[in-house]
Design a binder for these strands. Structure first.
Length: 649
DNA sequence: CTATGGGTTGCCTAC
DNA sequence: TGTAGGCAACCCATA
């Protein structure tokens, strides 16, 4: 019998140490062994990936490639610029492959992709070996032990996990890797569908990564940002297994930190160094094994002489949350990443709701601009120009460095959704998806649902203040001064509410608090975009109302638009509730028309119609007639006074 | 069935 | 400077 000819398919497991799937591949004792990465157009064009995360991925790929070459100088990571679904059938044949091995991935798209690849392999007579390794416990098993239901609380994970068994100890990196076989390719490269390209806004020129299947030099090398058309990374956080293990070593060496870590007591305002581990991007790309992290920490905890912290606040507790979100996603699939058709996500009539294709039941990637004012708030939030320094500093840190502290994420997420703007959590999740180095679909969607009180968490009356919360950690405002340098000279008395600084103080500090942040101006910081206390009250009322109505994303009333009957106009959000009698008539239509009907857009197309550039900055346009028109049309949407009065009755 | 306590990470005021 | 209780009130697991 011929010896195995094996492709090991790297995906979110960019490491050599503690990779159960890689070990399984090597255990086949292959005659020829190709470590492969497929440059999937779905990731390149259809996922939101900012330049910093591209760099991190490339770092990880280069590092794993180097590590392979170190063990066998004839081998490396063979990066092929084509979708796996079309590449593999050709590759199986050309290289006479007998086995395909990879780590299990429960992301919704990954499942579809892998199902297709497994079918292709079966047809080609190639044996597929899949090993779980991305989470503490296999997510499907976790769901099974949770009575077949998505894991929606940490106590469920703590009950279900141990029923599967103990968390395995990490296995060492392989000491040898067999030679690859031939690497000639005598087939054509399938050209990808490049549109829509969700990353076109970041590219400075067109993507060149599909010009040749083996790369510009024909050596299967890892792409460069230049090849992808992106500018240079702006983050100092770097990827790769080597770096990840060094970081872990450093953390573990500090026994007290490791054993007594309590997440809620770490300061979100700390920078250089940050208060948490910064290992999350490595867990995402797999440059660090989750079991490696778990056991290195657990061993310190077990040997600690003092009082160690416990899950869920401890370091290992953080990993449980990750498994919880993975379990929820494994069970709910695509719907976990959106509100509509999500059986476990509460329906709240947020502003800027996602557009949904009712045939596929999936969000389209676009959204309805039901309120120009909300859109303006959203843009100001995204680019760190809200006029609230704590929020702006965090958003600027996120954009330039790709990472913010977990509690900082709480602050900006609460502010955008239930505690300020009343904008859909899905808008915020998209921004995080683009900018976070550690973006993990399951964790991102889960945490946004948590913070917006649509799932996992329900105490919506606990609301983060953009002034009081950072005061708890950083009275001097050092964090704000670092990321909003125009406020550097301001007295600490005003650092979180600069609009209160008298004009003399502003002059002394060399900053003027004026304008709406639409355009950046040297020495100018915008006024706050709303009165936070007022907005907090309005949002709280809206949440109370929506909780009372009690709809979830898969409710027929949510899908067909009749949810409006259950809301009145006192509820914040584009409800136009029971005063909008004709809305139902429009909703009888199918598909996109349903959502269009929901707009109640009859005579105001100019004000509410979004266009291709809708998500981009609109300059002064919003502020002009449109904003006024929107306000008027919504009758209370932007009229804070009316809402405040109503909320006080 | 109801009652009760807990839930990784709120804010404010009083002592 | 730290802590307790009120605030208004959510869901869920358990008894």
């Amino acid at each position: 019998m011929a010896k195995p000819r094996v492709i090991y398919w790297f995906r979110t497991d960019l490491r050599l140490r503690d990779s159960p799937a890689l070990q399984a591949a090597l255990d086949l004792n292959p005659e020829a062994f190709w470590p492969v990465w497929t440059w999937d157009p779905h990731y390149v064009y259809r996922a939101r990936v900012g330049v910093n995360r591209w760099q991190f991925l490339i770092d990880c790929q280069n590092d794993v490639s180097k590590s392979i070459t170190k063990i066998n100088k004839r081998s490396k990571l063979f990066l092929m610029r084509e979708a796996p679904q079309t590449l593999f059938p050709k590759l199986f044949k050309a290289w006479k492959i007998t086995h395909l091995v990879f780590e299990k991935d429960t992301d919704a798209y990954a499942r579809d992709r892998d199902t297709e690849v497994m079918k292709i392999a079966r047809e080609a007579g190639v044996e597929v070996i899949v090993r779980s390794g991305r989470t503490l416990w296999d997510s499907d098993q976790l769901v099974e032990k949770n009575h077949g239901k998505p894991t929606m609380s940490i106590s469920q994970v703590q009950a279900a996990g141990p029923k599967i068994g103990n968390i395995p100890r990490p296995i060492p990196a392989p000491k040898s890797i067999p030679d690859p076989g031939e690497t000639n390719l005598d087939f054509e490269q399938e050209q990808p569908e490049t549109a829509p390209d969700l990353n076109s806004g970041t590219r400075k020129h067109g993507d060149k990564s599909y010009e040749k299947i083996s790369g510009p030099n024909g050596d299967f090398s890892v792409p460069t940002l230049e090849e992808l058309g992106f500018p240079a990374s702006t983050s100092l956080h770097r990827g790769g297994e080597k770096i990840a293990l060094e970081m872990l070593d450093k953390i573990i060496a500090d026994e007290k930190y490791t054993a007594t870590f309590e997440k809620p007591n770490t300061a979100p305002t700390d920078f250089e160094p940050q208060a948490t581990t910064l290992l999350s991007p490595h867990l995402h790309f797999g440059s660090l094994s989750i079991r490696e992290f778990y056991w290195r920490v657990q061993d310190v905890v077990d040997n600690y002489s003092g009082k160690a912290s416990q899950p869920p606040v401890s370091l290992t507790g953080q990993l449980l949350f990750r498994d919880m979100y993975f379990g929820a996603q494994a069970s709910l699939g695509y719907s976990f990443g959106q509100t509509l058709y999500n059986s476990h996500c509460r329906f709240i009539p947020w502003h800027l709701p996602s557009k949904v294709d009712h045939e596929t039941k999936l969000v389209t990637g676009e959204y309805h601009i039901d309120s120009p004012l909300a859109e303006q708030w959203f843009q100001r939030w995204k680019y760190g120009r809200t006029g609230f320094p704590w929020i702006d500093a965090l958003m600027r840190q996120l954009r330039t460095e790709g990472w913010i502290h977990h509690l900082g994420r709480h602050a900006v997420a609460c502010f955008l959704t239930r505690g300020g703007c009343y904008i859909s959590w899905e808008r915020g999740a998209e921004v995080f998806e683009e900018w976070l180095l550690d973006h993990e679909t399951a964790c991102n969607a889960g945490n946004w649902q948590w913070l917006s009180c649509t799932a996992f968490y329900a105490q919506f009356y606990r609301c983060y203040s953009p002034v009081a919360f950072p005061q708890k950690w950083d009275k001097e405002g050092l964090f704000v001064r670092r990321y909003c340098p125009e406020l550097k000279g301001l007295d600490k008395k005003y650092i979180y509410e600069p609009w209160k600084a008298p004009i003399q103080d502003q002059k002394k500090a060399g900053v003027r608090i004026q304008g709406d942040g639409e355009e950046e101006q040297e020495g100018v910081y915008p006024k706050p975009m709303f009165d936070f206390a007022e907005r907090r009250t309005i949002c709280l009322d809206g949440m109370k109302k929506a909780y009372g109505v009690g709809l979830y994303g898969d409710d027929p009333k949510v899908i067909d638009g009749t949810w409006r009957k259950l809301f009145d106009d006192a509820a914040e959000g584009p409800t136009e509730g029971n005063t909008f009698e004709d809305a139902m008539a429009h909703d009888a239509d199918e598909g996109e028309k349903v959502r269009d009907g929901l707009e109640g857009g009859d005579d105001n197309d100019g004000a509410i119609q979004e266009d291709e550039t809708g998500a981009k900055e609109k300059g002064g346009e919003i502020k002009g007639g449109d904003a006024k028109k929107g306000k008027k049309r919504k009758g209370g949407q932007g009229t804070l006074d009316a809402h405040v009065k109503k909320s006080k009755k």
